[in-house]
């Protein structure tokens, strides 16, 4: 295991100790072609036998799932936007953005870094997976993830999230969500290829005048060393509920230990000082 906590990594799986690992697997989710059909959500649930997530209308457009969580590993966001319209002007400026969110399989995954049991591990595909027979439900990963992805399932007590269909990709199959996506909004493949494809798609959209199109999580110089699952967005990340500039929390871990060390020394010092004197 490398001790690099931050910055770009040449080969994530190799860095995690795999000799000669397969190409890093990833997702490119192109939200500009998402039709919000939620086939990805359902396919994920079917394949992974995830329980339902409750039956409540949120009033948030067509999104009644709300967010990623222990029982929702793909989540389709629906964002309604509009500018003032004139009658007869058709839909005026109405936009309905849809985006299928998923665990980012970060290059520097905070969830994995902080997991005390080793339940979270890096696979040979450089993805991040929870071993359900090891997880003791400490929920540290929940607070560590800068994207708010992983969560503990109440009643079950363990943490759950997308496995990038570890059990499928190992057999050469596409993840269930990508397989089900009718418009290829979710593209699965070697991350390098996906990044290239994404940049080409971005250029295409820019050429078409879609200036607001941007890639998210594709840059390996970002705060998590780049995402294994990255996105093409049509608005600011926070519009979709994504953090604009996430940083893996363990980037600051050395500094934290230093301050804690100082504090421990201070504590010890104070105790010692207190015992100076007779009474």
């Amino acid at each position: 295991m490398s001790d690099s906590l931050y910055g770009p990594l040449h080969d994530v799986a190799e860095d995690a100790g795999y000799a000669d690992p397969p190409a890093r697997a990833g997702f490119f989710t192109d939200t500009s072609v998402c039709i919000g059909c939620k086939a990805c959500e359902v396919a994920c649930k079917e394949w992974n036998a995830i329980p339902d997530d409750g039956f409540a209308l949120t009033g948030m457009s067509y999104d009644n799932t709300g967010q990623l969580g222990a029982s929702t590993w793909r989540h389709v966001a629906f964002i309604e936007q509009s500018r003032p319209r004139e009658v007869g002007d058709g839909d005026g400026g109405t936009r309905w953005l849809m985006a299928s969110d998923v665990c980012k399989h970060c290059t520097h995954a905070a969830c994995l870094d902080v997991c005390p049991t080793g339940a979270l591990f890096r696979t040979e595909f450089a993805t991040v997976v929870v071993q359900q027979d090891v997880c003791n439900g400490c929920a540290y990963c929940v607070s560590a993830c800068p994207y708010g992805v992983i969560d503990r399932r109440e009643g079950d007590g363990r943490a759950w999230k997308c496995t990038m269909c570890y059990d499928r990709i190992g057999d050469g199959m596409e993840p269930a969500c990508a397989k089900a996506c009718p418009t290829d909004s979710i593209q699965y493949g070697p991350l390098d290829e996906l990044r290239e494809r994404a940049r080409a798609r971005l250029d295409e959209l820019h050429a078409e005048g879609v200036a607001e199109a941007r890639l998210y999580g594709e840059d390996e110089n970002d705060g998590v060393g780049g995402d294994g699952a990255f996105f093409l967005l049509l608005d600011e990340p926070e519009t979709y509920g994504l953090p604009p500039d996430p940083v893996v929390t363990t980037r600051d871990l050395p500094a934290m230990w230093k301050w804690a060390g100082g504090a421990a020394a201070a504590l010890a010092g104070c105790v010692a000082v207190s015992f100076l004197g007779r009474r």
């Binding site: 949120t58 948030m60 709300g66 967010q67 969580g69 966001a77 964002i79 929940v142 607070s143 993830c145 800068p146 994207y147 708010g148 992805v149 992983i150 969560d151 608005d235 600011e236 926070e238 519009t239 979709y240 509920g241 994504l242 953090p243």
Partner: peptide, 11 residues
């Protein structure tokens, strides 16, 4: 700042 229905980004 924009947000997704005021929902938290983090868990």
């Amino acid at each position: 700042f924009g947000s997704y229905y005021g929902r938290p980004v983090l868990k």
